[in-house]
Structures are given as C-alpha cells and as structure tokens.
C-alpha cells in the first residue's frame, strides 16, 4: 500500500498536471455566456470543458482547455466546486457533448446497408440513418450503446438493459 502511494506521488510529480480547485481558480460566465477562468493570476477566456471519460465518468477529471487546445488545468471532481460554478461547467459540457439520450426505440428498419431509426430522445423525436458495419453502433462502455449516424451525429442508449424486449430485438441485429 505504501509503495502504491509512493508510486502515485512519483507519477503525479512526473506528469505535472495542474489541478484546478475552488481555492486556486475562479470560473465565470462571460457576457457572451461562455466560460472563462482566472487561475495563477491569469485570465483565460473563453475556455472549453473536455471530459476525460465522457462515457464512464462525466463528473470527474475534466480538462479545461483553450480554443487552441492548450490545457489550463484539470478538475478532479465537479462536486469539489460550489453549486453555481459546477452548473456553469456542466452547461459547457452539455454544449460540447451534445448527445441525445434515447429513451424509447420506436422503430428500426434496415434497407441495403443502412438502418433507419426512429427514436424518442431527451431532445425530442429523432429520425436518423446509420450506415451498417464499421462500428457505427457500438458499446462505448458496458451497457452504454453509442450510435453514430451518417453525418456523425451521436445518440446514446444509456442503459441497454433497461430496454424492453421488443426494443432490444429491434436494435440487436444492428450491433
């Protein structure tokens, strides 16, 4: 255990990742409703929030980056921040990871290498086309199915095991 800890410290030193905490950084919304952060005496605006684990853990290890993809720092847990700041950051995550969650599979039909999906999602009823094969319908994490349509739009079934038998039958052959 002590060795583990030791190794962890060594890695952290070597990696030199800068962690943002409520103590060393201040997140603000700009007048254009974008995110800015003041840290280490510097102001960065606008900044974008990238999830390290967008499918398995959306609230931990968030990378705050500039438009030029330079990392300002990382947030270990969103919950470390006060409610107001956390929801500011969450809004940015919503903007970046726009992926309607499928709540109900209404119909899936297949024709000549493409499948046509009609689903109810958190963003409303969606109809889209998916090319067969090449990993367009795949598990992004256990039980979490990611669907990419012909234009690259993403849809997700957050819990495949929550689907009804009928719904599962419709999507099973598309995987």
């Amino acid at each position: 255990m002590r060795m583990e800890e030791h190794r962890g410290m060594e890695l952290a030193d070597a990696a030199g990742i800068r962690y943002l905490t409520p103590g060393n950084s201040e997140f603000m919304e700009t007048s254009g409703r974008m995110l800015s952060v003041r840290t280490g005496g510097e102001m960065h605006s606008p900044v974008y929030v990238h999830c390290s684990f967008p499918h398995t853990n959306q609230r931990s290890f968030l990378s705050i980056r500039t438009a030029g993809n330079k990392e300002i720092g990382m947030i270990r847990h969103l919950d470390d921040f006060p409610q107001g700041t956390a929801s500011l950051i969450e809004r940015q995550m919503k903007i970046r990871y726009f992926t309607p969650e499928i709540t109900k599979v209404i119909a899936v039909s297949e024709e000549f290498g493409y499948s046509y999906w009609e689903v109810a999602t958190t963003a409303g009823l969606c109809r889209f086309t998916v090319r067969n094969g090449s990993g367009n319908v795949k598990f992004a994490a256990e039980n979490r199915l990611l669907i990419t349509d012909v234009d690259g739009n993403r849809f997700v079934i957050p819990q495949v095991d929550q689907l009804s038998d009928k719904e599962y039958r419709m999507i099973e052959m598309r995987m």
């Binding site: 409303g124 009823l125 109809r127 012909v150």
Partner: peptide
C-alpha cells in the same frame, strides 16, 4: 423548440 428532428439520410 422542435419536438422532432429528421436527420439527413432518413
């Protein structure tokens, strides 16, 4: 807000 959305290809 649109309640429905049909993506290209459909």
């Amino acid at each position: 807000i649109s309640k429905e959305k049909t993506f290209s290809g459909y």
